[in-house]
C-alpha cells in the first residue's frame, strides 16, 4: 500500500517518475533488460528484438493516433521508407549504421509530412483514407523504382557492426535495438510533459477549441505526423538490419492494421499502452503458432490455417478491445495497480 508522496518543489512534481517507487521499478526494469541476454536463449532474444522494433513503430503511431487523434493506416509504408533508405545507404555509401538509421528516420519524416498534408484540409476518417492512399502509392514506388529498390526481388542488407562485432544475431543485435527503444520511449514520454504534447491531446479532444486557445492546428498536426513517421523510419531501418533483406511485401497494408491494432489493444494515448500493445501483438502470433502446432497432432495440415487464424485473431482483438476495453491493456494494468495500492485495506 502506498500513501502520499510529499514533494518540496513543483519541479519535483513535474518529474517523469514522481515517486521513489517508480524510480526503483524503472531501475529494476533496466537491470532486467541488461541481464536478459545472459540468461535467455536465441529464440527469446529474437522475440525481444522483434518486440522492440514493433514497440518503436507502435509508439510513433500512438503519438499520432492515440494522442493527436489522427488515424493513420500508413505506418508500415513509412517503415518501408526508413528500411529502403537504410538499405540503399548501406549498399551504396557504406556510411556507419547510426548515420543510416538516422537518415532513414529523417527521410521517413519527410515522406510522413507530405502524407500528412491532407490533414490540413480534412479530419478524422478522411485522413485515415488519405493515409491508405499514401501507403498504396509508396508500395507502388517500392515495387517500381527498380534502380533504388530492386523491385519485387528486394534488397539484401549486411548486418551493422559496432566495435568490430557484427550485430548479426539476436544476441548481439539486442544491444542495438533495446537501448534505442528505451531512448525512443523516454523521448516520447518527455514530449507529453510539455506544451507540445498537451497541444496534441487538445487537438484530439477538441480541435476547434484548441485553435481558439492558441494552438496552431496545421503546425501541430504536421508535427505529430512527422514524429510518428520518424519513429516508423527508425523501426523500419532496424527491421532492415535485423532481417537482412527487404522487399515490397515486407510492409503491406496488413502490417499497418497490425500496428493500429497494437495501439488499440495496448491503450490509445498511453506510453505504457504502446509497450504493452507492442509486446502483446508480437507474442500473439507466436502463441498461435504453438496452438496450431498442438492442433497439428490431431488434424492434417493444421499449419495451413495459421495465417488466416492470425488474421481473424487480429481483427477480433481490435473489435473486442474497442467494444469492451477501449482504453486497452494499459487500463487493465492501472486497475491491477490500483488494487495493490489500497491492498490490503480494500479489496
Amino acid at each position: 500500500m502506498r500513501i502520499g508522496s510529499p514533494k518540496e518543489t513543483y519541479a519535483a512534481d513535474e518529474a517523469l517518475f514522481r515517486t521513489r517507487t517508480q524510480w526503483a521499478w524503472f531501475g529494476v526494469l533496466l537491470a532486467a533488460l541488461a541481464g536478459f541476454p545472459f540468461v535467455a536463449n536465441l529464440y527469446w532474444l529474437y522475440l525481444v528484438c522483434l518486440v522492440s522494433i514493433n514497440v518503436i513503430a507502435v509508439t510513433g503511431l500512438n503519438v499520432l493516433t492515440g494522442y493527436t487523434g489522427q488515424v493513420s493506416l500508413g505506418q508500415a509504408a513509412f517503415m518501408g521508407v526508413g528500411a529502403y533508405t537504410v538499405a540503399w545507404l548501406e549498399n551504396h555509401t557504406g556510411s556507419p549504421f547510426p548515420v543510416n538509421l538516422l537518415a532513414g528516420s529523417v527521410v521517413a519524416t519527410g515522406v510522413g509530412l507530405i502524407a500528412g498534408l491532407p490533414s490540413l484540409r480534412v479530419k478524422g476518417l478522411y485522413l485515415a483514407i488519405a493515409t491508405i492512399a499514401a501507403s498504396f502509392i509508396l508500395l507502388f514506388i517500392f515495387k517500381n523504382w527498380e534502380s533504388v529498390t530492386n523491385g519485387t526481388r528486394g534488397i539484401g542488407i549486411e548486418p551493422p557492426s559496432a566495435f568490430g562485432v557484427a550485430l548479426e544475431n539476436p544476441d548481439t543485435f539486442y544491444w542495438l535495438v533495446v537501448p534505442v527503444t528505451v531512448v525512443m520511449l523516454l523521448l516520447a514520454s518527455n514530449l507529453f510533459r510539455t506544451r507540445i504534447g498537451r497541444a496534441f491531446i487538445a487537438i484530439r479532444d477538441r480541435d476547434i477549441s484548441a485553435s481558439v486557445l492558441g494552438i496552431d492546428l496545421p503546425r501541430y498536426k504536421l508535427m505529430s505526423f512527422g514524429i510518428s513517421a520518424f519513429y516508423a523510419g527508425m523501426a523500419g531501418g532496424l527491421y532492415a538490419y535485423f532481417f537482412g533483406s527487404i522487399n515490397p511485401e515486407s510492409f503491406p497494408l496488413l502490417m499497418s492494421i497490425f500496428l493500429l491494432a497494437a495501439v488499440i489493444v495496448g491503450g490509445m494515448g498511453s506510453m505504457l499502452g504502446s509497450i504493452l500493445g507492442g509486446i502483446f501483438m508480437t507474442l500473439v502470433p507466436e502463441l498461435l503458432r504453438y496452438g496450431i502446432d498442438f492442433l497439428g497432432l490431431f488434424m492434417e495440415n493444421a499449419s495451413a490455417v495459421l495465417s488466416p487464424v492470425r488474421t481473424v485473431v487480429f481483427g477480433l482483438l481490435i473489435v473486442g478491445f474497442l467494444l469492451f476495453e477501449p482504453l486497452g491493456l494499459a487500463e487493465i494494468w492501472r486497475r491491477i495497480r490500483r488494487f495493490f495500492h489500497l491492498w490490503p485495506f480494500r479489496t
Binding site: 488466416p308 487464424v309 488474421t311 487480429f314 481483427g315 482483438l317
Partner: peptide, 8 residues
Amino acid sequence: GLSSVLVG
C-alpha cells in the same frame, strides 16, 4: 477489425 476477421 471486422474486415480482418472476414478475410481470415
